[in-house]
Design a binder for these strands. Structure first.
Lengths: 295, 295
DNA sequence: ATTTAAATGAAATAAAACTTTCAAGTGAAA
DNA sequence: TTTCACTTGAAAGTTTTATTTCATTTAAAT
């Protein structure tokens, strides 16, 4: 039999030889791993109604020097196997590094998406949608690797006949673009990783003019997010060599979905109008199928 | 503004009024929640290189009696929001068919990705990567809703110092762009749903000049895909009201990954060069951490 | 029933984790 | 430049946590 050395298996291996009270301790730990990692020996003793001395002996029977060492072991196990971040890291690292294995890449994208679910908060999403619908003009900023995100959202929102402008400029040109923005407008900015000069300029101008800012970021550092009116947190994860844009795109989809939902019939109307125009002037339907509604 | 009383928001609210060392504590806690919940004040003090006394003061400034109380609060937040079980529970609690239910949207994206795995074929992916690396110039076409895809791939490939140009034009302008393309180049085109006039023009010119075309599409209709040298099939699925770009982005990632893999050290070199430049001329690193490699 | 070895908890002891004090350092206002 | 309020770390002091000792209980073997 393979000797397993994590604390769970350590307990299992010794279990049969343990006396009554210590079995009680083992049972509780196994069943309440995620509580025990936060308990002191005193509190654990109270919860279990087993003396502290016996708990120390239990730890020593398992091969530890004392209780703190046992707890360290439990925490290690907990963090290695039971924590969301670690589990995701593991599942990504576990994949062999074959750059042509599409399944692998997709698997890691899926892990990212799954972990993203818990970092996005419904309230912020609703406020984001409201802000977009309320705004006179929406200016969407995204530079470099984020231009595609800005472009994506701009294109989709424009299809709902919202007044949306994509701004992918930096340096001095940024100032020119910012001149015409006023407080009934909304700025959407995609900004990851850390602050840039442009970002700080943008935030300062927005603050000055009283313009709301919807920030989509993976940063949770106060200096970055403090000035934004709404923050949507897009965890891009510890993806090995490069950061995937899958999660931000999913957030865009959520926004688009929300806007479509709030617009209701109006959204459908805008789209069918578009389809009419396409049919008339541009698209050729050589596949002999009628044009179908698509946002 | 609604008073948020969890420890994360407590920190955010007080953040601006905190002195230097205490900001450092706040930053660390926010970024390393799942470590801090397991640290004693002594170890935290060592990690942060901030005295224990200051950590106690930080806790008191946040309204706690002392450090143990702060930690209890952090643990509560951690267990409420960051633990796998709780996260799951929270995402399930949401209502069905709710446009603000991010979990649901993500779930459908995941389904799309899963089904995409089976439609992409490894051989085509490898040929695509080879074609990109072999090409003199790469011209990437994507209009309308696909512009973001073209942009995404262009940006990433450019970072490897490949000669890549994004072409998001239509109508007569398209012809001008096509004039300078020759048979050592590669055309990449994102084209979904059905053929357009522009698409057919592009394919005809490519055929005329003997230029290879990598087509990324969800169509399997012969007229569309017949003329392309390589086809990557991106199933966007029967997604309700609109088509998600998550799958095409994942395909982009696969291509980027493949190119990076083939380039090997050269890719790393190009990236670190970029980071050097950034460090020197553009980025401000207010978090006092060095810029890390990122594609 | 008696013996004996093992297990246990109460209490004493030791070791940490945590808090307070105080003197020195910092930086903004006078 | 000086003042003053504020921040900080070192070190002393306090509280909590963990360990050991020891007397008692338990239970298996005789």
């Amino acid at each position: 039999m393979i000797r397993q050395s994590d604390s769970y298996n350590k307990i299992l291996q010794k279990y049969d030889d343990l006396p009554k009270q210590q079995k009680k301790i083992a049972d509780y730990i196994i069943q309440h791993f995620d509580e025990v990692v936060f308990l002191s020996i005193t509190r654990l003793s109270n919860v279990l109604e087993v003396s502290e001395a016996t708990i120390v002996r239990f730890a020593q029977n398992l091969g530890h020097k004392g209780f703190p060492e046992l707890k360290k072991d439990l925490v290690k196990y907990y963090r290695d196997y039971l924590t969301p971040g670690e589990r995701m890291k593991r599942s990504i690292e576990a994949l062999p590094d074959d750059p042509f294995n599409f399944a692998q890449i997709v698997e890691s994208e899926i892990q990212l998406l799954k972990s993203a679910v818990s970092t996005i908060d419904r309230g912020s999403l609703m406020r984001a949608v409201d802000a977009i619908l309320k705004a006179n003009n929406v200016y969407i900023f995204g530079n470099g690797g984020n231009e595609c995100l800005a472009n994506h959202l701009t294109f989709r929102l424009a299809r709902f006949k919202l007044k949306v402008v994509q701004q992918s400029v930096s340096g001095k040109n940024l100032f020119e673009k910012l001149l015409s923005i006023n407080k009934d407008d909304l700025i959407i900015d995609y900004h990851f990783y850390k602050s840039t000069i442009d970002f700080r300029r943008l935030m300062n101008v927005a603050e000055d003019k009283g313009v709301s800012v919807l920030l989509i970021t993976d940063s949770i550092l106060p200096p970055l997010i403090k000035k934004a009116s709404i923050v949507l947190h897009a965890e891009r994860g510890p993806a090995g060599r490069f950061h995937s844009q899958v999660v931000p795109i999913a957030i865009n989809n959520a926004i688009i979905n929300g806007v479509a939902g709030k617009l209701g019939d109006k959204a459908v109307l805008a789209l069918s109008e578009l389809n009419q125009m396409r049919k008339k002037f541009y698209y050729i339907d050589f596949a002999d199928k009628s044009v179908q509604g698509e946002i």
